[in-house]
């Protein structure tokens, strides 16, 4: 067991190294002096806030809205249906988006207008997230703060693997956003990424989110059930159990490892706050495992 853990950590380190090398190649050469930033990706917004650029953000997409408290930030709507003219009319020095930024004509218009435009990847692993942070920090000349952030994230990652101590739990991520049922996170989802960060084993074999019956969850008998809910205070664990009392019969229910988490932090891939959440989750999950 300890042998496999060792090799996994090593592969991970190698992966970081390669990724950092790649990002070093693609980062913009000159740091941008950004006074007016538009961020159309909630993950990027979070990184910008952590790098202390929050006051420079003049407009965001709808998923970034909950992160910003300032009243002066303009709303640009859904990040896949942005209006080119609206973005250009704000005359930003820098636009930060992701591979979800769209539609294509808008992206093309931004590129034609020769405004600094950084398109990050939607991170599925901690390594992706770190490379995004490094990329942005370098472009904005905040490499030191960026490195501190990365160090902090990697500390949390180590803490998580210290917590789980080699146990390999079966986990499932459910979205419980309305009264009509549950939707289960398959591979290629942020729910899956979160389970990976927790070093758990996702019981889903399919891709994307699929609605599932209670019976199939009972049949798979997961050790941990993570329930994503809206940030505006929808169902907590207790409420979920009162609506689906049969979940108490799963291994997760019996060891009280049905845990509700804030789904809004997981919209644009694995974010800084998602890693934070994972850190807290690991403490809960693995303390009750012992």
């Amino acid at each position: 067991m300890s042998q496999s853990k060792f090799s996994r950590l090593n592969t991970r380190k190698l992966f970081y190294g390669v990724l950092l090398l790649i990002t070093a190649q693609i980062t913009v050469a000159e740091p941008v002096h950004a006074e007016k930033i538009i961020s159309v990706d909630s993950n990027a917004t979070e990184i910008l806030l952590a790098l202390d650029f929050g006051s420079k953000i003049i407009a965001t997409d709808i998923t970034s809205e909950p992160l910003l408290t300032s009243q002066n930030v303009k709303q640009l709507g859904y990040h896949r249906a942005l209006s080119a003219e609206a973005i250009l009319s704000l005359q930003p020095d820098l636009i930060v988006g992701s591979d979800h930024t769209g539609p294509a004509p808008t992206v093309k218009a931004i590129q034609n207008a020769q405004i600094n435009f950084i398109q990050l990847n939607s991170p599925q692993t901690i390594a992706d997230l770190c490379s995004n942070i490094q990329h942005l920090a370098k472009a904005l000349d905040r490499e030191k703060t960026g490195q501190q952030l990365i160090d902090d994230i990697q500390r949390k990652e180590t803490a998580i693997s210290d917590h789980h101590n080699g146990s390999n739990l079966k986990m499932v991520f459910l979205l419980d956003l309305n009264d009509r049922g549950l939707s289960q996170a398959g591979r290629d989802t942020v729910g899956h990424a979160l389970i990976n960060v927790l070093d758990g084993q996702n019981i889903s074999e399919f891709n994307g989110y699929q609605s599932v019956s209670l019976e199939s969850i009972l049949a798979m008998n997961p050790d941990v059930i993570l329930v994503g809910r809206h940030s505006n205070g929808a169902p907590e664990t207790e409420q979920l159990l009162s609506r689906h009392p049969l979940l108490k019969n799963t291994a997760a229910g019996q060891t009280k490892r049905i845990i509700s988490i804030d789904a809004s932090k997981l919209i644009a891939g694995l974010s800084i706050s998602a890693v934070q959440q994972a850190d807290q989750l690991a403490a809960i999950i693995y303390s009750s495992a012992r």
Binding site: A59, K74, Q75, L76, G77, A81, L82, S83, E85, A86, I87, S89, L90
Partner: peptide
């Protein structure tokens, strides 16, 4: 284009 600018309606 104009009603809810900068958001664009379909």
């Amino acid at each position: 284009r104009v009603l809810l600018a900068p958001v664009e309606l379909p």
